[in-house]
């Protein structure tokens, strides 16, 4: 390939970057709080809620994300007209599927973080007069988050790479444009370009999380 061809191909691949970034940002913003909510509900005093949440996490983590996307995109619209309308856009399905899936993983990460918070912290809060909500907000959450951070970093890097899955429900992203470029040019160089694009994205992400880890260290 000539330099100008490489440049043009890179440009073509970068058209898929918007999809990757949108997916990443929305899914992180939606699944982190949702995951935390699940963690909390899994500790709920009402047993059926615990069972439901644990079943949810079990299913979401135990099945391939691609099948879940299939289910939402191709299956749910047949259930009723509401789903048919709401899930018209493939991107909505992708955002929903990814968020629901990643929330389950984050819930498990947060659970691990919670387990790492010393029992003494709860006792200290109690004798200082903090109520349950205050204890959670000001003592438990920050410590849990700090412990969970490396795992969150790991998951978010996986998320960037997982976005390539959305092509299974017909959304164009970097890897798909790379495939198209490969079949157009007959060279596998576009794969190398995609490789670099993903690597660059994740390098930025890694830098951000390194900074965050340093900032929240204690």
């Amino acid at each position: 390939m000539t330099t100008s061809e490489i440049l043009a191909t890179t440009q073509a691949l970068l058209q898929g970057l918007g999809t990757v970034i949108t997916l990443f940002v929305v899914v992180m913003v939606a699944s982190l709080p949702l995951g935390f909510l699940l963690t909390m509900l899994a500790r709920c005093r009402i047993a059926p809620i615990r069972w439901l949440v644990n079943a949810y996490i079990y299913i979401m983590r135990g099945t391939p994300l691609m099948l879940q996307l299939f289910f939402i995109y191709y299956g749910l619209p047949f259930v009723n007209d509401f789903f048919k309308m709401a899930l018209r856009s493939a991107m909505v399905c992708a955002l929903l599927g990814f968020s629901l899936n990643y929330a389950a993983y984050f819930a498990e990460i947060f659970r691990g973080g919670l387990l790492s918070v010393d029992k003494g912290q709860y006792e200290a809060c109690q004798v200082l007069g903090l109520n349950r909500v205050q204890t959670t907000l000001y003592a438990v959450l920050p410590q849990m988050f700090r412990v969970a951070l490396p795992s969150i970093t790991n998951e978010s890097i996986t998320l960037v790479k997982d976005t390539a899955l959305v092509f299974s429900i017909s959304i164009m992203e970097v890897l798909y444009y790379a495939k198209a470029a490969v079949s157009r040019t007959g060279s596998i160089l576009p794969y190398a370009i995609a490789f670099l694009i993903y690597l660059a994205l994740n390098s930025l992400l890694q830098l951000f999380f390194n900074w965050l880890e340093k900032k929240t260290a204690y």
């Binding site: 043009a8 440009q11 073509a12 164009m172 198209a180 079949s183």
Partner: peptide, 14 residues
């Protein structure tokens, strides 16, 4: 499957 030239594929601008 837009990777099947010349029947259906993507040009440089996708």
């Amino acid at each position: 499957d837009a990777s099947f030239p010349p029947m259906g594929f993507m040009d440089q601008n996708n």
